[in-house]
Design a protein around this nucleic acid. Structure first.
Lengths: 208, 208
DNA sequence: AAAAAAATCACCCCATTGGGGTGATTAGTT
DNA sequence: AACTAATCACCCCAATGGGGTGATTTTTTT
């Protein structure tokens, strides 16, 4: 038999915090080692709790939950952080993940899914609520109706990698002048006149 | 009562194809409108089938499944594509999603999860197998132990947006020479000597 | 078969950039 | 006291980037 999954909770709403604690504590194989109402509270003691997983709210008093993620990760490098919040704006989600969160659940998540997700992050998974998964997948999807041709898209991608005309020409086995010509057409189509603007517009519209 | 979810299957393995068809056909609320063994087969007729969701394999004879995605999307713009495959390399996954797939399941996925995922894509979700979700979430996460300072990271990010020294200086309200100095330090730390190499290395190691 | 779009190459100009050197100063941190 | 981060300065020079104004060939669409 495996040892319990040790969970720490950081959530400022007392009712919710107690609710989660009860839910997790009552589940076989899970154990709540501590719960805190803010990052500052947690910072003092959480390192000694040695949780496997931290359930973290984002809307915290004092240090914002997103900024708390890297700090917690520093205190507990091998601990997984699972976000449990009402926020589901693209920015919040992406920043949380970029900062080191391993999963992202919205607060309407049913109890069973929360329990399952805790195990999932511990096992290296990446649990997400359905709406979050949609956001995340969309962030990968390219615009299917790009005004750019294949070659142009390809060259814009290389520009996005910081490559110069010469490097692009060498990579694609075409003349430097041809690269220039393509770039001019890209600028025309996107109505811009610099690499930076082209990249910005292209990324905004997911052309690259 | 809602109308059935119409599913089309494109899968070259006959046993699997029939298995999926049976599973879906036997489930209340689901209906298999067609199944094909290749994209070329499907292309001729699938537009008239008008499926809500296409279950797509990647390892297909003839046109590769990944390349088939945009073609299918063109034939059926309002149809969701759910990948069901054994491949789970980062490249395969990201390309599939970039090309317009709405979900990605690996072939060890249990029947119940497949059925649930079909409904989930139809409802605008983004179902993924656990291992795929992990890949996807990791792709967002930045390296917490970057050798670069905050300012350097910030400048490298701007370089990644295609900005010139001058543009960076203007944006950060610092001198052009200061920007140069930071860039030199970035090159030193990363042991590179061009923007392109710095960006490449930084992205590989998720420093930006 | 005709028209349109994509991909290729050419040569004009010139201010700006990019990368290499080699320093210095000030403020924080350790 | 030593170190890192962040700021600015001036040397050099080839290459780049963006603006013009073309042309040719292949591919795709109509």
């Amino acid at each position: 038999m495996r040892r319990n999954i040790k969970v720490s909770i950081i959530e400022d709403d007392e009712t919710l915090r107690d609710g989660y604690a009860f839910l997790i504590g009552a589940t076989e194989g899970y154990e709540v080692v501590s719960s805190y109402c803010s990052y500052d509270e947690a910072a003092k003691k959480i390192a000694t709790d040695k949780p496997d997983v931290i359930l973290l709210d984002i809307e915290l008093p004092g240090v914002n939950g997103i900024d708390a993620i890297p700090k917690l990760k520093k205190l507990l490098p091998n601990c997984y952080i699972l976000i449990l919040t009402v926020y589901e704006s693209e920015k919040q989600v992406f920043n949380a993940l970029a900062n080191g969160a391993s999963g992202y659940l919205t607060k309407n998540t049913p109890s069973a899914k929360i329990i399952e997700s805790i195990k999932e992050v511990r096992d290296g998974g990446g649990p997400m609520s359905i709406n979050i998964a949609r956001l995340v997948i969309r962030s990968f999807q390219k615009n299917q109706e790009s005004p750019l041709s294949k070659r142009e898209t390809q060259i814009l991608e290389l520009i996005g990698e910081g490559k110069s005309r010469g490097q692009i020409a060498a990579e694609l086995f075409i003349d430097l002048e041809t690269v220039r010509s393509h770039i001019k057409n890209i600028y025309l189509k996107l109505d811009v006149n610099s690499r930076a603007d082209a990249i910005k517009l292209a990324r905004q519209n997911k052309l690259i």
